[in-house]
């Protein structure tokens, strides 16, 4: 392993993050607060409790997942798209690094940023509602795996994208709807029966359900299935990236 390269890539990506640390910190704080004002206060006053949890607390895991997923994707996709766009990718292609090292450096940094934002949101939310975490170990595991797998997915999007529009396309057209419809703000038991079935095709449901279970001990789908889903997604993305580097798809002519 070329650890010097892994650390060079990781540090350089994180430096970019720290250049705009204030922004990175303030925007999730503000958006989380807004969610609490809108959902927690306005809607929450009408919905008393969901599965024995106050509505304000109920949405916290979903809120964290929502931001972590979108941030992991946007950070990772931009992180690799940018060097392609400005041409500095030449250095990465001519360096003695393999796919695993590039993934550790770039995806690792993107996942770290997403994790940071997740933690900031959890902190902000705890100012509004009382949060208890029943399974802290599982909570951390779910959070880490989500950061990692969505950063991997973002990395693939960044390599696939050939312009800025395409870079925005997948997150906008696929991820945002899946996340919003994935039970971030409701329990799927609140849906009409037919939608309860359809929604099970949405992979995000499994992640949010599992994550929420680690907080409150209640889940929409069995927690083992949630873990399996996210592990499977991570493996799938890793496989795709391995193939990309082997064939040079979209990066090496």
């Amino acid at each position: 392993m070329n650890w010097a390269a892994v650390s060079a890539m990781y540090v350089s990506e994180m430096t970019r993050f720290f250049r705009t640390i204030a922004q990175s910190f303030i925007s999730p704080v503000i958006s989380t607060s807004l969610y609490f004002v809108v959902f927690g206060a306005a809607i929450g006053s009408r919905i008393d409790q969901v599965e024995g949890v106050s509505y304000g607390a109920f949405i916290v895991p979903g809120l964290i997942m929502l931001s972590v997923m979108t941030q992991a994707i946007s950070n990772a996709s931009f992180g690799i798209y940018f060097p392609k766009f400005i041409g500095t990718i030449y250095e990465l292609l001519s360096a003695p690094v393999n796919f695993l090292e590039v993934v550790l450096g770039f995806v690792g940094a993107a996942a770290t940023k997403a994790l940071f934002i997740g933690v900031v949101i959890l902190g902000t939310a705890s100012l509004f509602v009382d949060i208890q975490i029943q399974h802290p170990f599982a909570m951390v595991l779910f959070l880490l795996l989500t950061c990692l797998s969505f950063a991997l997915f973002g990395f693939i999007i960044g390599i696939w994208a050939q312009n800025f529009e395409q870079l925005q396309l997948i997150p906008l057209l696929v991820i945002t709807p899946l996340v919003f419809l994935g039970g971030s703000f409701y329990s799927i038991s609140m849906l009409p029966p037919i939608w309860q079935k359809i929604t099970l095709f949405n992979p995000v449901v499994y992640l949010i359900s599992g994550f929420r279970w680690s907080f409150f001990g209640t889940a929409d789908v069995p927690v083992g299935l949630s873990l399996l889903a996210i592990a499977g997604f991570t493996a799938l993305c890793m496989g795709a990236i391995w193939w990309i580097f082997r064939t040079g798809w979209r990066i090496r002519s």
Binding site: N2, A4, A5, S7, A8, M9, V11, S12, T15, E91, L92, A95, P96, V97
Partner: peptide
């Protein structure tokens, strides 16, 4: 930083 980065990338 740009120059150090290259050194690291090449495993030094």
């Amino acid at each position: 930083d740009a120059v150090s980065y290259s050194r690291g990338l090449f495993g030094k």
